[in-house]
Write a protein that binds this DNA or RNA. Structure first.
Lengths: 225, 225
DNA sequence: CCTACCGATCGGTAGG
DNA sequence: CCTACCGATCGGTAGG
């Protein structure tokens, strides 16, 4: 049937378009991560893709739209991951643990690194607002997870806002140093961070004997800095 | 005496020069932190200082030299702080604690934020190498502090490299969100981070009763992600 | 009229 | 320290 053939052809064409667009975004994210958003030129990006610069504009409207799409895909991935974990019936502490490790893996990917490394300041006001809102929602959901854990008694009393910031900060910073050549997988890094955050640096075994020292070390008493 | 007068005059002039140069660096650091290094133009910097752009070149050789000087002063400040703490005869855990809090304060200042937020990629190769070496030394010294703590028994066995990265990451990330308008001082943020890192998220009191759960939570057992 | 581009060049701005 | 500029390169777009 002619009509079906047309539809098929159009579908195939759209598929090709989307595949090429996705390749553009991935290559751009890598360039941004290597050189920084401002120092990565569209000429260079076109060169990497073996097309001319005007060709890029068939797939994107502007340079900052490229950045937005890269960061959007990263944050959507994080959003889906967190939603899936939240919808399970596990205790809050386990949900937090699962997300932290998955989040570490996502930050190690091209789009995840781009989200952390490239400034949102380059985005247009409208897109910048969207990104800020999406990130705020992620941050807020993690805070709530911690608050739930405190309520359940599985997490020690703390300031959920600051702890969330410390968690995201530790993981986000991996985007600056993590290299695939290293011996550690992103997952192993995430699990090591998780372990540190969960059990703390003060030895657990010594809890009974050096209780006073611990309290001091925890900053519960005055810290003579 | 004429000679003394000359010397005095020259000293005064040099003082004025250094003061103006320092003002230039501080204003530049603020501009870099607000807009990002690449988006902050020298025209804008000149406007902020109420001089013309060529005037800037009386005090600095290039735009990337401004960035280097800002970051250099930040890292020198951190270096001095760490050396002072290391030379004391306190236990390793306390040294680590003292540095973490002071470091948090330094990252909240203009040059400290500039060190964290502005990419070293904009620096000339020679200066970039100097900065990288200075930062690596700081990182290495903190790792050694942790290794000492483990040897002393005041710090639980862990991977010093990864824990150092988590510590620096959590604090460095404050440069992205910390605002002087907030209710928390940089010191309070540093102390809260310290508390989290030292005691961990798993409640201490429950140590005896839920020891098995804790082990699991600490990531010592398989984590079913 | 459409698509998937190309060679050439635009206006504006960067550091100097 | 300013006025007046430069060589180069930026993101983005013209006609075909």
């Amino acid at each position: 049937m002619k009509k079906a053939a047309w539809t098929e052809a159009l579908q195939k064409r759209d598929e090709q378009y989307q595949l090429k667009r996705q390749a553009l975004l991935q290559t751009a994210a890598r360039a941004f991560n290597e050189l920084g958003f401002d120092r990565a030129s569209l000429d260079d990006l076109a060169r990497r893709l073996n097309v001319t610069k005007p060709t890029l504009y068939y797939y994107i409207k502007s340079k900052d739209e490229i950045l937005f799409e890269c960061q959007k895909q990263a944050v959507e991935h994080m959003r889906l991951t967190l939603d899936q974990i939240r919808s399970s019936d596990k205790p809050a502490l386990e949900k937090l643990s699962l997300f932290l490790v998955r989040y570490t893996e996502l930050v190690a990917e091209d789009f995840g690194r781009c989200l952390v490394l490239s400034s949102h300041k380059a985005l247009q006001p409208k897109n910048r607002a969207k990104m800020a809102a999406a990130r705020r929602r992620l941050d807020n959901d993690v805070r709530n997870l911690i608050a739930q854990g405190i309520a359940e008694g599985s997490i020690a009393p703390c300031n959920p806002k600051l702890v969330t910031s410390a968690l995201f900060g530790a993981v986000n910073w991996t985007a600056h140093w993590y290299s695939r050549d290293g011996e550690l997988t992103p997952r192993a890094v995430g699990e090591a961070f998780l372990s540190t955050f969960l059990s703390g640096l003060v030895p657990r075994q010594a809890a009974q004997t050096v209780r006073k020292d611990q309290k001091q070390a925890r900053g519960e008493r005055a810290l003579r800095v």
